[in-house]
């Protein structure tokens, strides 16, 4: 199995839009690409993870303007059921060309909605741009609250940025306090459904992106489909991004491959073990 999925090209990239970069997690790829697609009419709206009434709890919403797009910047590391808004976007908001961003399982859900639109009337033919974000695992909201409040000793309200990388869960507060936890501590709070997930870099997205593989402030971008190639090409031509060849940045593609292999190997093992979880009894395997 190719852990990085099919792709046409991969680069290290960063947005050229200062306003977007200011509050983005890494290279501002998702926001810039959607802002460009919106401006050009490639999409007429996008389903994104935005703020909710609880601190750090994302809530899916439909953005139809640049200002709304900007509300969705930054990674939140806890569950946001974007797909619950997919049919709303076409049927209630009346969008004909929907953009969607999500972690790999949500991109899988989007593709399933297209190929098996069992309860997704008016969705399959109206998906215009699907952007995936690399993902190891997410936490349920309460799990994240435990990590930040009980382990890192910070109030969720005071947190400015969270980061997972280099074996650490990092919490940075508005006042500049930085707390780091080894991921060993956070593992048990992970969403169980993540442990059977066999996709790290959103193999079925049009474009997938994440910080891994690129230097700080940059993102690694896979262009996968014809649609992805088309939109990415146009956005590049319009000057939305600066790029570097992936083989000229550190740590490079090797790091992406390493993490993807780690995740998929570990989770495939979980899937396999489920086949004899009980005494002569299996837990259902969704992939066969």
């Amino acid at each position: 199995m190719n852990v990085l999925g099919k792709y046409k090209s991969v680069v290290s990239a960063r947005s050229t839009d200062k306003e977007i970069l200011k509050a983005s997690q890494d290279g501002g790829i998702v926001t810039s690409l959607f802002a460009y697609a919106l401006e050009q009419g490639i999409i007429d709206g996008a389903v994104l993870a935005g703020p909710s009434s609880r601190p750090w709890q994302p809530q899916p919403f439909v953005a139809t303007t640049r200002a709304e797009l900007l509300k969705a910047r930054g990674t939140k590391y806890n569950i946001c059921p974007q797909i619950s808004m997919l049919k709303e976007a076409t049927r209630s908001y009346g969008l004909d060309k929907v953009g969607i961003v999500g972690v790999p399982c949500q991109i899988q859900a989007t593709r399933k909605a297209q190929l098996y639109p069992i309860g997704m009337r008016d969705v399959p033919d109206k998906i215009a741009l699907v952007v995936g974000i690399y993902c190891m695992e997410v936490f349920p909201y309460k799990g994240m609250q435990l990590i930040v409040e009980d382990h890192a000793g910070q109030k969720l309200q005071s947190v400015k940025k969270m980061e997972i990388g280099k074996g650490k869960f990092t919490v940075i507060t508005e006042r500049g306090n930085v707390t780091q936890l080894p991921l060993k501590v956070t593992h048990k709070y992970e969403q169980p459904g993540c442990h059977v997930c066999l996709d790290y870099v959103a193999n079925t997205a049009d474009v997938s992106t994440g910080s891994v593989g690129s230097p700080d402030g940059w993102s690694t971008v896979f262009v996968r489909s014809r649609i992805g190639e088309d939109v990415w090409g146009k956005a590049m031509a319009a000057g939305c991004f600066e790029t570097k060849p992936i083989d000229q940045v550190k740590p490079g593609l090797e790091m992406v491959t390493k993490l993807a292999t780690e995740k998929i190997t570990k989770n495939q093992k979980t899937v396999d073990e489920r086949a004899h979880f009980g005494v002569g009894k299996a837990l259902r395997n969704p992939y066969i």
Partner: peptide, 13 residues
């Protein structure tokens, strides 16, 4: 069965 990952497809469907 520990498979749900919270995508929300069910709610949309």
């Amino acid at each position: 069965l520990g498979l749900c990952m919270g995508c929300g497809s069910c709610a949309a469907a």
